[in-house]
Structures are given as C-alpha cells and as structure tokens.
Nucleic acid binder design. Structure first.
Lengths: 118, 118
DNA sequence: CATAGTGTACTAGACACATATTACACTATG
DNA sequence: CATAGTGTAATATGTGTCTAGTACACTATG
C-alpha cells in the first residue's frame, strides 16, 4: 500500500480521518477488528508508534475498544456511529461556511461552483 | 489585537489566508501598503520572523511587491486578484467535495445541512 | 550626512511530529 | 508451560515550525 500523505496535517490525524471515513462508508462494520498496530504500520508505511497514536485517538473518541493481547475493535455501539456521522457532517459544513465567509464569497456563487464540478 | 490561531495549521499559513481574505473582500486594495513586519508582528502577537515568512509567501504568490526600505504593497495587477479569486473558490469547492467523498456523504445531504445553517 | 523606519539574514533554543529500537504485559494456541 | 501475536511504554534522533535576539542593507526625511 504505502499511502501518500498530505504535508499540511499530521499523519496520525490523516489516518484517524481515513478510518472514520471507512466506518461511515461501511467499509468497517461494528465489531470489526482493525489490523494490529504492526500490520497497519507496514500497510501504510508508517511507524508503529504513529499507528499506536492513531488507535489511542480512536479509543478516546469512543470509536474503538481495545483488548490487550487480542486487538482493537470497532465499537459495537451503533448509536455512537450515528452520532459520529452527524458530527462530521456538521463539522464539514461549518468549516466550509467559515472559509467562505473568511474569503468573502457568497453562498450562492459557491453553490454554482459546486454544481459545475460534476 | 493579538489574534487567536488554530493549532492545526502553521501560524504563517493562517496569516497568509487572512491577508488573502482581506484582499478578496476589498479590505485591502490594489497598491495598499501592508503594515511593516515589526508593526504587524506586534498587532498579531507573533514574531517578526513569522511575519517575514508571511510576506515572503505573499510575494511568491505574486500578490505583493516589496520595496526595500519602503514597505510591502499589494500588487497593482488587478488580473492577478481576479485569478486569485477564482483559484480560491475552486480550491475551496474541491476540498469540500473531496472531504464529502472521503466520509461517504452524498452531495444532496450536505446541501441540506448547508441550507439549514442560517 | 545623520537618523529612523523599512525589509532581510543569521544563529540558537523550545516544541510537536515521526521515526527507530528495545522492552514489557496480556491473551490465545498448541 | 512455551510460543507467537496482541497492545503498551520508554528512550533517542531528525525535521519542521515558531520564537528570541542580533545584525545588516536599503530608503526617505530633515
């Protein structure tokens, strides 16, 4: 695999985003086991410590449960996933609107651009 | 002033964004003089070197012209400003769409959220 | 020409991020 | 009980960002 990471954001943060995306898109289901830290490190071409930080963040977000000696698993709390979906959607929308305002664009002209981009 | 900066992005980058915004919103006009690096450093509560980097970035983007001993001025090339406006608009839209796709949202449901947020 | 105000350059240090390496604690398996 | 595979922890190193301080080069002004 060996993913390509953006330079303008910490790698661990980008990996958290990626996994959140996989959860929301249904690529990862409730109770699914994530790769071990060592496996995922090799897959993504990243250091084990960085993966460890990713898993720690996910657990702090209540998105995973870690069982020492067994692995890290997606939470079985479906409500949390629904909540995550809403939170991410609102965050995305809010950031978009904030950026628009910061640069002085009108909402209307942005909608036009969004519509153009297939 | 002493602005508040987000921790997830370099300060110099946030200042570049801010000035770009001021240009696009007409708060800064063609030929306007920016504060001196020292002045702006005090205004924003940031180090002189950081401001220097901001001005260097702006010049590299052809948004300013620097006259040693006189100051830094917004470019008088109006076409460049129009171009900047288009570029920023497209970048914003593209990033938004990319994020939406990464998290598995549909364009329709995002438009609904955008509409809700006054 | 002296001075004050510009931008510019350099060195040093603090901090976060990521890496590399090693070691430890727990669990399942045979 | 031995082993392999989990997560976890600690230390050291390199890089980028930001700060702090100092010094230099250029320009306008009186």
């Amino acid at each position: 695999m060996t993913l390509d990471f953006s330079r303008d954001k910490p790698i661990y943060s980008q990996l958290v985003d990626r996994i959140c995306g996989d959860i929301l898109k249904g690529k990862l289901l409730l109770g699914d086991r994530l790769p071990s830290v060592r496996e995922y490190a090799v897959e993504t071409g990243v250091n084990v410590n960085t993966v460890q930080r990713v898993y720690k963040e996910l657990e702090a977000m209540d998105l995973t449960e870690t069982k020492r000696g067994q692995g890290t698993f997606i939470t079985t709390n479906e409500e949390r996933i629904v909540e995550l979906r809403e939170d991410m959607k609102n965050l995305l929308a809010q950031n978009f609107l904030t950026s628009i305002e910061a640069l002085g664009f009108s909402r209307e002209e942005m909608l036009v651009v969004l519509h153009k981009k297939s």
